[in-house]
Nucleic acid binder design. Structure first.
Lengths: 217, 217
DNA sequence: TCTATACGAGACTGAGCGGTTTCGGATATG
DNA sequence: CATATCCGAAACCGCTCAGTCTCGTATAGA
């Protein structure tokens, strides 16, 4: 499930069938998966049709069904192959304070990507409750990377002595993601910088035991 | 939109048509609406079919379509007519401390109802983004009552001097609902008392500026 | 060059579902 | 008792969509 673009559904034994004819063009795989993710983000799982994905990727439906046996498998692979384009470990801020690190994550680029991922997550509801595989893939690709970043920031703050060592890292790391998801998906309001700043200064930092010394509002 | 069980779709002018024959049995309205809410909570808007609702309510499809012109109207009315059975103003705790009030809300009955409502909210995603009417009804029936309770608790704490007057009530009131929605809908984990207690003691109270004096963990 | 396969485009099939209609029976008005 | 409407049950219609198949073209290996 974790290998790149499926492919392993057929051919149980390895390669003793050197088939003739034109080879499958595997450069289309990621293009189709990207198209699927886009449609998924716009329409949700139920609203998404294979024809939409095919049109978006300028591919034929048969080309899609030659690679994935069903719509559910396509979506599962598309979600599993989502790369955390931003928030790569080497591009993360390290400002020396928890607030600095958290605020440094508030950038148009990063917010946009977060909104996109949460929209995808919203589109997966319904399917997520009937497919544990999909639920796991979505958590792994969408939620977990963000939580890992928050945990890193918190752990560094603890190591610096900025935050008490007995603070509940796992819970605090979920505050930003949880409240962002609530605002976007439930309250249907944009994830603007003001909201995120309030979240940091009025919830996360106080909960981490950091006194409000440098308020900006 | 706010009156009880629809009925006003027909008869633009009031009652100059005293029609003959058997009268419509309006005691079936809430039974059908309840059935719709149940199916909605189990299957979501897209997974729900009118036949499911009819079967659950032991009614004919025609009986449903005689009262609501479409599936969307049925769901809208069902959501709008949802009563906040628990959390009626006179049944709310008033323990004298913010923590006491919040902890007093953690009861099996209340948790179960909260899970139910959040499941319904999850089932409405997708539809909620295309129907502002439904989005408003869902917010009004499911989210707002809970936020109002939290705001009340916070305001009383401020009036008592327990919490600083400049605290961000609107944001803090959203923490419990937002984090609960995240845990249930995104992380697919139960809303147990331990989680809610951690939320209160490690996030909400510190964010409200109340020092951790009586920890229970 | 010949063969087997992949490709995009699109026709086709079968199932599911929203919504309508029909049917036999019940019920309130007159 | 007659009439008009209601009821539950279920047949029916029209459309959408997942999944298959066909067609004309392109391409890799023998």
């Amino acid at each position: 499930m974790a290998q790149s673009h499926s492919t392993a559904q057929l051919d149980p034994e390895a390669g003793p069938t050197p088939r003739l004819g034109r080879k499958r063009d595997h450069t289309r795989d990621p293009e189709i998966l990207d198209a699927a993710i886009e449609v998924l983000a716009e329409s949700g799982f139920d609203g998404m049709t294979i024809d939409m994905v095919a049109a978006r990727a300028k591919a034929g439906k048969a080309t899609i069904y030659r690679r994935w046996p069903s719509k559910a498998d396509l979506v599962l692979d598309a979600v599993a192959c989502m790369k955390a384009a931003d928030l790569a470990p080497e591009r993360l801020p390290d400002t020396g304070t928890l607030r600095g690190d958290l605020v440094a994550m508030i950038r148009p680029r990063s917010i946009e990507e977060g909104e996109r991922k949460l929209r995808i997550m919203g589109g997966l509801f319904g399917m997520i409750s009937t497919s544990p595989e999909l639920a796991a893939a979505a958590h792994q690709a969408i939620i977990e990377p963000r939580l890992a970043v928050n945990r890193l920031f918190l752990q560094r703050a603890i190591d610096r002595g900025e935050v008490a060592a007995d603070c509940d890292i796992d819970l605090l790391a979920r505050v930003a993601s949880g409240m962002s998801a609530f605002r976007m998906l439930v309250e249907q309001q944009p994830l603007d910088a003001d909201y995120l700043l309030s979240l940091i200064d009025h919830v996360i930092l106080p909960a981490a035991g950091i006194a409000p010394e440098a308020r900006t509002d």
